[in-house]
Every structure is written in C-alpha cells, then in structure tokens.
Computed example of a mutant assay.
Amino acid sequence: MSDFSENWEQCMHSSGLLVPNVEDANEALEFLHQVHSAWENSGGEAELTIAGLLAAGALVGVDEGALAVLGQLGEIAVAAYLSACISCMASVALEDIKSLFANNELPDFVVAELEGQGVDLTNEAVA
C-alpha cells in the first residue's frame, strides 16, 4: 500500500467513510470519475445515495473491490461522498492535484469541488 493510499484511507476513515485501495492520486481520480459519471447518468440528484446507484446498476466498469467498498456505504449521498473524497485527496496530495490541474488533466467536477472548498489550484505546483 502506498503512502497516498494509506493517507487517503486514514482521512476518509476519520470522516466515517470508506474508499477502495488505490495506489496514487491518478487511480483515485479514475475511481471518482467512474462514480461521478454514474451519478450524472442517473440524474445527478443531490439526494441520490450510493445504494441507489448500486441498485440501478449504474456503476458499470467499477472493479469488484471498489463495488464492495461502495456497497458498505449504503445511504450516504453520492454528492457528499464525492465531496469528502475530493477533500481528503487534496489534503494528502495537493501538489499532485495542482500538477494535474496545471497540465489540464484534472476533471472539471474535481476542479469545481475544490474551488467550492476554497482550494487555490492556480498556485504553481512543485515539480
């Protein structure tokens, strides 16, 4: 398990939430993108829960390990879960996030969430 993975999981656990095991910020972003896409394709309702996404079969392409984690989250709202994941990711890998932003590789929904949380992505990333 990588430092990123351990730190991200620890941050999420402190909020009472779970995340699948990923090695780096890129894998975490891929997972978040899959969940976000499924949520948007299901209408993007603020009150839609993880259980609702699973029941609708909306999480196509998500690996079994991630589905097992998501299955334990049940009635957590998808929007709240994504927000918590992005917040924790920024708290443990902000320089990676800034670098992805600088290279225009950060998904728009992540940029919007971070900006909404007051995170300044425009500061030059450390290489």
Rank of each mutant, 00 (worst) to 15 (best):
E124P: 14
Q72F: 05
M1L: 10
S14E: 13
A46V: 07
A58L: 00
Y81E: 11
G116A: 12
L70W: 02
V60G: 03
L53M: 08
N41I: 08
V111I: 00
A56P: 03
H33D: 10
I50C: 12
L67N: 00
N103F: 04
A56Y: 09
L17F: 12
L59C: 01
C85E: 15
N123I: 04
G43H: 14
L73I: 13
E6G: 13
S87V: 09
I76D: 00
E113M: 07
A84S: 12
E47S: 08
H33I: 13
L48K: 12
G61Q: 05
D96C: 02
A25E: 07
A80I: 13
A127S: 15
S14F: 13
H36C: 06
E47Q: 10
A79Y: 11
L54H: 12
E40S: 06
D63S: 03
G116I: 03
W39P: 03
E64C: 03
G71A: 13
I76Q: 06
E64D: 13
A93P: 13
L94A: 04
A28D: 06
H33Y: 01
E124W: 07
V60A: 12
L29D: 01
A38M: 08
E45W: 02
C88T: 14
G57S: 11
E30F: 11
E124V: 08
L70R: 05
L54A: 09
A102I: 09
L54F: 07
W8K: 01
G74W: 10
S42G: 08
D108S: 01
Q34T: 13
L114H: 02
E105L: 15
S14V: 11
